[in-house]
Simulated scan of single mutants.
Amino acid sequence: MTLKYLISGLILGISTSFISWIIGMIVNSILAKTKFYKKISNLNFISNKAFNKYIGLNYFKWIVKNTFFKFFNQKIKVENKKTDLTEIRNEMTLSEISHLIGFIFVTFFAIYTSVTKSYLVGLAIMVVNILMNLYPSLLQQENKRRINKLIKRNIKTGTNNAFN
Rank of each mutant, 00 (worst) to 15 (best):
I7E: 02
T16P: 12
G122K: 11
L6W: 14
L123V: 11
I155V: 15
K117N: 11
I22N: 10
Y37G: 00
T67F: 05
K149F: 13
I151E: 00
K35L: 06
Y54Q: 14
A124P: 00
S29M: 11
F72G: 12
I125W: 12
F18P: 07
K75E: 09
N28M: 11
I88M: 05
V78L: 12
L31W: 03
N73A: 12
G56R: 13
E91G: 06
V121S: 04
N143H: 10
R146I: 15
K33R: 13
T86D: 14
R153K: 15
L134Y: 03
I46W: 09
K70F: 01
R145D: 13
L6T: 07
Y54M: 14
S137Q: 04
R153Q: 10
A32L: 01
F18S: 10
K53S: 15
E91N: 15
T159S: 15
S47A: 15
R89G: 05
Y54D: 11
M1E: 03
Q141P: 04
N133H: 10
F36A: 05
I104Y: 09
M1Q: 03
N48D: 04
S137K: 07
T107R: 09
T83A: 02
V78Y: 14
I26F: 04
K38I: 07
G24E: 01
L139Y: 00
L3P: 08
Y37M: 06
I55E: 01
V27M: 01
G24Y: 15
N133C: 05
N160A: 10
L134A: 02
I147D: 05
K77S: 13
K82D: 10
E91F: 05
N90S: 11
L120H: 08
Y5K: 09
L6M: 04
E79S: 15
I104F: 14
F72W: 11
F69W: 00
N52A: 13
S137A: 13
Y135R: 07
V27E: 01
F103M: 05
M25Q: 10
I11N: 08
F109W: 05
N90A: 13
I130V: 09
F45P: 00
I14C: 09
I30P: 12
I97V: 11
Y112A: 08
Q140R: 08
N52L: 12
K149D: 04
K61C: 08
Y37D: 03
N164E: 09
K77G: 05
T93I: 14
F68W: 09
F18Q: 10
K149T: 13
L138Y: 00
L134F: 01
K35C: 05
T107V: 10
S17V: 02
